[in-house]
Write a protein that binds this DNA or RNA. Sequence first.
RNA 1: GCGCCCGUAGCUCAACUGGAUAGAGCACCUGACUACGGAUCAGGAGGUUCGGGGUUCGAACCCCUGCGGGCGUGCCA
Length: 623
Amino acid sequence: MLLDQIAVLANQAIKEAFGVRVSRVPLEFPQNRSFGDLTINGFMLARELKLPPAGIAEELARCIGGIGPIDSAAAVDGYVNLRLVPEAIFQGSIPQVLHDPDRFGTNEERAGKKLMVEYSAPNTNKPQHLGHMRTDFLGHSLSLILENAGAEVVKANLYNDRGTHICKSMLAYQRWGEGATPESSGKKGDHFVGDFYVLFEKRFKEERDAWIEANPDHYAAYRDKHGKDRKDRDVPEEKLRTKYAASFKDEYFDKVDLGRECQEMLLAWEAEDPQVRALWETMTAWVIEGMEKTYVDLGVSFDVVYRESETWQWGRAKVMEGLEKGVFYKRDDEAIEIDLRADKLDKKVVLRSDGTAIYVTQDIGTTIRKAEEHGLDGQVWVVGNEQIYHFQVLFKIMERLGYGWAEDLYHLAYGMVNLPDGRMKSREGTVVDADNLLTEVAGLATEEIKARDPTGEIPSDEMEHRARTIGLASLRFMLLKVSPKNDMMFDPADSVSFDGDTGARVLYAYARLRTMINDAADETPPDELDLTVLTHENERNLALSILSFSGTTARAARDLNPSVIASFLIELVRDLNRFYDRCPVLKEADEATRKARLGLCRAAAEVVRRGTQLLGMPLLDRM
RNA sequence: GCGCCCGUAGCUCAACUGGAUAGAGCACCUGACUACGGAUCAGGAGGUUCGGGGUUCGAACCCCUGCGGGCGUGCCA
């Protein structure tokens, strides 16, 4: 590899000039290309060499200029800006890519590690929405990025298929479903069940409001207790009402028939009541069937699927072991707890006083089981940032239990997806449904394709295929280009824009390359190309962009961050478009130049393919 | 109350974790060879990086403080 070679040369120069080798040569692509092709950061070297940066840069520039692929070196403000021999840049990129495209851009960042990535973790009572799409895409892309970094990755999903929320839709169906099925109603299973979940919430609210109406004293009591804030001022009536109503969710759930029945149903489920279980089996199967269809449409997949209905009891035995080891202790009320205050966390109950499991109990069991079953070196959870505290607690518990791999557990806490008019609330129907969104975006892509196909030659099934591919790629790219940890804004109107920094632009660039390569029908082996004819700045920049791919994939793996790949693709595509604009390929008269440029195009196409592959984006040969 | 996260161009986001002149896209303005596919390219305008202190050769990034927003703080998930 060219970059490795330069790093070695630089280190030799450092040895000659300063008498010591450095642990890592800080070789970077400069943020501004006018500085040079590559740059060595003298400030970084200064730390290790304990000498002033400017002096280091000047000395190093003197030693290294003109050696091998380095054409010239200039010391500027503590940096050593390198200008490379053009042929080295092209030889270092084009044949490198073409000889083994699938190897180009792989790295050793996670070599030999076996890792599990858990993502999606849906509730099996409603269809997926935009928020799920972020974890679906992030988790899937991350798995690909880690594999590319040498890891063996197990993609895991966990269906949250038990609990109160599941009983809600079951109860609503039991009461008002009239024996309908997804087939009889013509709905996808997850949507069918989700509608009953919404219906439950609606009816529950009605019953709750009626109950409040009939029991004014109850609200009065609540007001007496919560009506003043800490500074003894009156809480505004409207706000108090809202809080009061919200408190029904748990505290007063059993005051309303529907709520009480829901709790009874959960108990019946846990007691394995055959009727309840039968209903549960049926409805869960409907949802899962619908959901798995959505996964196919989204292009995500899993190697193993856990179900909470199976895992929820796994943690008990582990908690008991921990109790014996003294990691946990039993409180007076029989609840089992851990005190994490020494680690800046709080006390946390890990098993209820009645011996039943809670969320952490389940996760304690599942985490250990996963590690043991699959012999994992580490685990990653792609879960929203509202659960940061939960994972801090979980990881600390693993550490206290003495698992060596505890330090290789990582919560990739992604931010919320907001809409222009606020946040999504499933109860208020302000969610963006995944299936609908896919269809909608595909529809808009169809318009764009038609606008470019005035003769209407594209057959309808091909049209459908292209539209869905463009739509999916656009959504993937849009959700992945933002740094995972940050909250993001999703404007549905923008999601269908095909100009600018979009997935469609990347697809377009690729399709353009493919048709060009096809039309050329030139299979000259890379070694037979005369690359010395490539002299244009735009050719050079494109090749440099290609060279930066490996560093990018390594960084993505190191930081568990797909967005750096997205940024890379945007820059690569920009360089590509600039290249096209100034450097004719098929129309080029000189045969050697035409072949060399075509080689550059073939290499670029492979890198676009590799990059999009890591984001899980589908591609098209024609658009 | 306490804890964590965030605040960068009108809008949506970057900035390789402390390094050069803070960069893209959208929107706005001006241009481009009858276009190897114009879903493009060239250019313009747009910034006190929320305010105020500090740390150092150097700060959007670290520390303190104030303001604004989000999320947590369950024997819920």
